[in-house]
């Protein structure tokens, strides 16, 4: 092979999001060490656990593609959980809860977007501050102790299956498909790509940069609200602690999925496999008896390695 051919080959390989490689290697490890784990029933249960994370990632990848970040998901999820479990709205039906969750996410996301795009405040700081304000509010309202129970119909929906796959997983895959089609087919998807490549160039080409960022954050907020619904259904009780580490995990999965931070590239399926990798990773770590601290370390290492991988690639 000539040198040029080799170079393009190397570039091709480097363009593959790391999540695919991580997923394949984790899958192989599981297959070699615990083949009995790899049946669809068991995998379905594992996948169902990461469905809220997977949904949250859809919003995260959108904002990260316009060079922003959203860490407020934890607060939104907690607030949605509080609506449902505190008995604040007695006798409310499912559509009412969906409306509440979406409306909350919409308002929070819109505020984030406005602060980031119009006031030009650092996205990390805005969304972190919003998150701790929401968490503080929920903890104050519930006096620091877990609120009541979740209505049974949510739990029932969560437990349904189509074939062997649990419905939450199918819902997650369906949302991912919609997001993928939306970003590749709509004009807004083109706007997102161009703003991510270079906000300045996009501005001079007539792309409404600020509006694109605001819409991205608003959508991320709505998606966080939906993730909050799924998360609440999954644990089936009120809590003042759930979902707090989800935004960081979502950032990690998105980076792993090839959405390069601060550059506008990346797809939707890379992060999807990033979430799948995390799901398998937790299984593998549990099998090998790695505790909670070890998992934290592994998460940190993965974020770092994925970021370094992209950093070095973009420099060369």
């Amino acid at each position: 092979m000539s040198k040029i051919q080799l170079q393009t080959l190397v570039q091709r390989v480097l363009r593959i999001p790391p999540s695919y490689l991580v997923f394949i290697s984790l899958f192989l490890i599981l297959w070699l060490t615990r083949p009995q784990m790899l049946n669809l029933n068991i995998l379905g249960v594992f996948l169902r656990q990461v469905a809220p994370l997977g949904i949250l990632v859809l919003g995260q990848l959108l904002v990260m593609r316009v060079k922003s970040i959203d860490l407020s998901g934890g607060g939104v999820i907690l607030l949605v959980n509080y609506y449902i479990s505190s008995g604040m709205f007695p006798g409310a039906s499912l559509p009412a809860f969906i409306f509440l969750a979406v409306a909350t996410g919409f308002i929070v996301g819109m505020f984030n977007g406005w602060m980031i795009a119009k006031r030009r405040v650092s996205a990390v700081i805005v969304t972190l501050a919003v998150s701790i304000i929401l968490i503080g509010m929920v903890q104050f309202l519930s006096s620091g102790s877990p609120p009541g129970n979740v209505p049974t119909f949510l739990r029932d929906i969560y437990n349904t299956r189509t074939g062997v796959m649990p419905n939450p997983v199918i819902f997650w895959a369906f949302l991912t498909l919609i997001m993928s089609l939306f970003l590749s087919l709509s004009v807004y998807g083109r706007f997102v790509t161009s703003v991510g490549e270079s906000a300045e160039a996009a501005h001079f080409s007539g792309v409404p940069v600020e509006r694109t960022v605001i819409v991205a954050h608003t959508m991320a907020g709505v998606i966080a609200g939906i993730a909050g619904l799924v998360q609440t259904a999954s644990i089936a009780v009120g809590s003042v602690r759930i979902g707090l580490d989800l935004p960081i995990l979502a950032v990690a999965a998105t980076i792993l999925g090839g959405v390069a931070f601060g550059r506008g590239e990346g797809g939707v399926w890379g992060p999807f496999f990033g979430v799948l990798s995390f799901s398998l990773l937790f299984v593998v770590l549990t099998i090998y008896g790695v505790g909670e601290p070890g998992k934290l370390v592994v998460q940190g290492v993965i974020i770092l390695l994925a970021a370094v991988f992209y950093g070095i690639r973009s420099k060369s």
Binding site: P293, G294, L296, V301, I303, L304
Partner: peptide
């Protein structure tokens, strides 16, 4: 990591935060 590997400071220090938290809990749960 920030200067040589071209990683955004927030991501680099966030990853470090996780590793240190894990190490801390290993030493003293």
């Amino acid at each position: 990591v920030v200067t040589r590997c071209n990683v955004h400071p927030i991501i680099a220090t966030l990853a470090m935060q996780y590793m240190l938290l894990g190490a801390t809990r290993l030493i003293r749960p």
